[in-house]
Every structure is written in C-alpha cells, then in structure tokens.
Computed example of a mutant assay.
Amino acid sequence: MNDKVAVVTGGSAGIGEAACRALAADGWIVYVAARRLERCEAIAAEIGGVALELDVTDQASVEKLAELSRVDLLVNNAGGAKELDYLRDADADDWDWMYQTNVLGTMRVTKALYPQLKAAKGLVINIGSIAGTDAYKGGSGYNAAKHGLRGLTRAFRREEAPDIRVCEIDPGRVKTDFSMNRFNGDAERAAAVYEGKLNLTADDIAEAIRWVASLPPHVNIDVLNIMPADQAER
C-alpha cells in the first residue's frame, strides 16, 4: 500500500473494529479512533496500527486530527441509535445525541481531515444504514439522522469530485452491540432484534469497506446497500 494511511472512527468495536483489522491485513497503516482509548490501544497493538482517542461529538477532540500528516482513507463509522420511541414520545436529548454523532460528527471529522484527504486525492467511506433510505415505526430519530448523513454524503461527493472519492455503505441488519447500545444494555430487547433471523456480521461490512478501499483511483462506488438474504424489505 506504500504506507497509505486510514483513519477509522468508532474503531473500538463492531464494524469499526472489523474494518480496522481488514484494512490492516490489506497493508494499510490504520489509526484506530474511538472514545475508549484502552480498547483502541489493544486493537492497534494486534494489527500494527496506531490508537487515537477521539470523540466525534467534541470539537476539541476532533481538532487533534489536524496533527496527522497524511490520510488517504477516512472511514466515518462512529454513530448509533437511542431507543425505539414513536415521535409522540420522542426524547429531545436522544435525538440530539443521534444527530451529533451520526451527522455532525461525520462533518467535524471530514472537515478536520479535509486538507490531508485533498492532498492525497483520498477516499471517504461513510457508514450509513438502510434506515437512511426508508423509515420504520419507532425509528424517526435514527431515520432522520441517517437521512441527514445521506444528504451530507451526496452533496460532498458532488462538491469534491473527482479529487476526493466519496462512498456510502448502507448495511441492513448486522449483529453487533448496536442494539445493546440502543437499548441501554437491555440484553433481552437487544437479542430480540436478531433472534430467529439471518444476520450480517461486522466482518461482512468490513469486507465491503476493504473492497471499496482496494479499487483503483478512477473508480467511485457511490452507494452500496448490504442486507442479509432474508431482509428483502427495508
């Protein structure tokens, strides 16, 4: 890879961790970036990467990214959902967190690393969701955030083509800690999301990230939807 550098946000677990491992196996120098520094350090030690403490909702934390001298690939993976409330029961704090993390966090990190990405004619991969192309009951807050991410991604692609490539990967049902985090550690509710269904794994999405990142610089994958075989409707 000629010492090409990748930054993966939300790299301490789930899709982010799997992406760090897949990219490192392909020869990338990977910055494992997340709030849990000790976990990032453990992963980085295993893959020969670099740990980076990062909270995408904190501008001061994000500004430290300016110290990186080179970035060829940015994977904006940090995100998540809070609860499964109908709009009539919406919690404004949950909505604010989802928007701060999924949308403004992506904006902050991408803006902070823009000079490096521009210089490298790099690639940005935003991890969206099929929740950003359709909606479901109780998902209005998360749907709104992921629809926002899709709008951000499409605009950025048009603004920077052909100098920076921009891709959105939209997974369907992936069995990770996503639902545990969504339901504040309620294991029973989280397990019910996946029980009796085919489920993607974090490695499945990481393989897609690795593939997109491996393509030659004249190729841009705009949007990639990935769902388990039994999830035919969004």
Rank of each mutant, 00 (worst) to 15 (best):
D163C: 14
R182F: 08
R182E: 09
R157H: 07
G151V: 09
P162M: 04
E159V: 04
D163I: 13
D177G: 10
T176G: 01
R182Q: 14
R150H: 11
P162C: 09
R189G: 08
R157P: 06
T176V: 06
N184F: 13
L152K: 09
A155R: 14
F183E: 08
P171V: 02
K146E: 00
R154M: 14
S179M: 13
R154V: 15
C167M: 00
E159S: 07
A145S: 15
R165V: 02
R165Q: 05
A190C: 01
V193I: 10
G148N: 08
N181Y: 02
R189Y: 03
P171I: 03
V174P: 11
A145W: 10
G172H: 06
R182P: 01
R173E: 08
E188N: 13
M180E: 14
F183Y: 14
E168H: 11
Y194F: 13
P171R: 10
L152Q: 07
P162I: 02
V174E: 08
G151K: 13
N181L: 09
V174M: 12
D170H: 14
E168R: 12
I169E: 11
F183S: 04
N181E: 08
R150I: 10
I169F: 10
Y194K: 02
D177K: 03
P162Y: 02
G151R: 15
K146A: 03
E168F: 05
H147R: 02
V193L: 02
